[in-house]
Write a protein that binds this DNA or RNA. Structure first.
Lengths: 242, 242
DNA sequence: CGGTCGATTGACACCTTTCAATACGGGTGG
DNA sequence: CCACCCGTATTGAAAGGTGTCAATCGACCG
């Protein structure tokens, strides 16, 4: 029933670092099961202290923090290949929540296995750190966006980033990809109001750069978007997969 | 001349996870030297590809990214105990710059030693990941601040965070700590203009919550600041030291 | 068919930025 | 020793980007 690591659909994508045979063996032991969840289900909750480790296999989600007053900040969108729960495992408790936006299936890893991973498979341990560094890098870029980019620059930046990520996992095709989020989600990830996000998206639509309707994102002119975002389209590096 | 790890002044601080003897031995091998630099010196530069690994031992600095148009976003302030250069080592090139604000001394680690660390010392490897997760957590909180907190909330949040960090390394005493940065640095870290940052600091001064003059920060009412920031003063967890 | 949710728009308020000017301290060359 | 310059802090006024409020509309659903 569950997908064996041998046949993991993600491993084929050239966006991911190839596995060695021994690594594959290790992952097969490390993976203890699979979890299928419906859209809207919370996966990890801020404050909880005994979470599992997951890798998103199919579907999309959202990672966010909330302020005491209720404001929500989206940390990032969760795409297939993302590794979830490391922070909680390492730091004692979750500092953010993760929620499924679409139906998702997650690889479940043995919680106690993380230490074994560091002990027995330095290559994989390094990959965990690598993933963490990639995440840190992304958050740094997000910080740059929230702090220094204007609304239109920020939205353009987000759309380019999403398209790049979509391409990496093979769902961005002919300028189109499924994008099942709400405008509110994008707004909360950029620190903008819903209304202003909507109006900014309209500007991009009017300029015929990008259209986002019916949970599908259509990028007409990625280069122009990247130019608005003051972003290099270059960096399309590979990442490890767990 | 150089400070032996045995006598590292940071290890005494209870903010850091204690070393085992074997870990100490490993670090002594891992550390290849010490670097003393003047205020204003660049330590790591965005785009460079062969950086060293450092731990800040004394002094303070600043980590930042810049936009093509010149805007600067401060990612975080560098305090003693911070580990620098991991991203570049893991991801191939630096994605941000680090600059010394005061004179600093840095522990220098063997670049090729990182892999040895993962291979030979899983405990230390885990600590590297732990540090990375802590950093990721902090950036997430920063994102929450930039995206959802108002100017006064953000400034209050930053001052509380700084005071907590200062306390952890033992330089926050009797409500005061050295804080050698410029208002522009704080502004760039919160995504605010210099002028507005200045006026916001004035509000906090008028309310007799915090004063920042002559490179010294004086917190009169940390609880009130935390309340403005919508922040729990609780989480004062320890962190590993490399 | 009423009710809810998300997208869309217009009008208006306001927080933040930008522009400009002053003040203060430290370094430097005459 | 003293102008002079430069970086930083401070303040006021005006401009503007973004948020808030409110209403409409379409799609989906029990």
């Amino acid at each position: 029933m569950t997908t064996p690591c041998d046949q993991c659909p993600l491993r084929k994508r050239d966006a991911f670092v190839p596995f060695s045979d021994s690594e594959l063996d290790f992952m097969k032991k490390f993976k203890v099961g699979e979890l299928k969840i419906d859209a809207g289900t919370p996966i990890l909750m801020e404050g909880s202290n005994a979470p599992q480790l997951y890798t998103a296999l199919r579907g999309m989600g959202i990672r966010y923090k909330t302020l005491m007053s209720g404001e929500r900040q989206v940390i990032n969108l969760v795409f297939p290949g993302d590794f979830l729960g490391l922070q909680a495992r390492v730091m004692g408790q979750m500092c953010h929540s993760v929620e499924a936006t679409t139906a998702m299936t997650l690889c479940v890893f043995d919680r106690s296995g993380l230490w074994a991973l560091f002990k027995d498979s330095p290559e994989r341990a390094f990959d965990v750190t690598w993933l963490s560094a990639i995440e840190e890098h992304f958050l740094g870029e997000s910080l740059l966006t929230l702090g220094q980019r204007s609304a239109i620059e920020g939205v353009a930046w987000a759309l380019v980033k999403i398209a790049q990520r979509g391409r990496a996992i093979g769902i961005f095709d002919n300028g189109r990809m499924p994008f099942p989020f709400r405008q509110q989600d994008l707004a909360d990830s950029l620190g903008l109001s819903l209304v202003h996000t909507n109006k900014t998206l309209r500007k991009l639509r009017d300029r015929q750069l990008a259209t986002w309707t019916d949970k599908e994102l259509h990028i007409s002119d990625l280069d122009a978007l990247a130019a608005i975002a003051q972003l290099d389209v270059a960096d399309q590096s590979t990442r490890p997969l767990l």
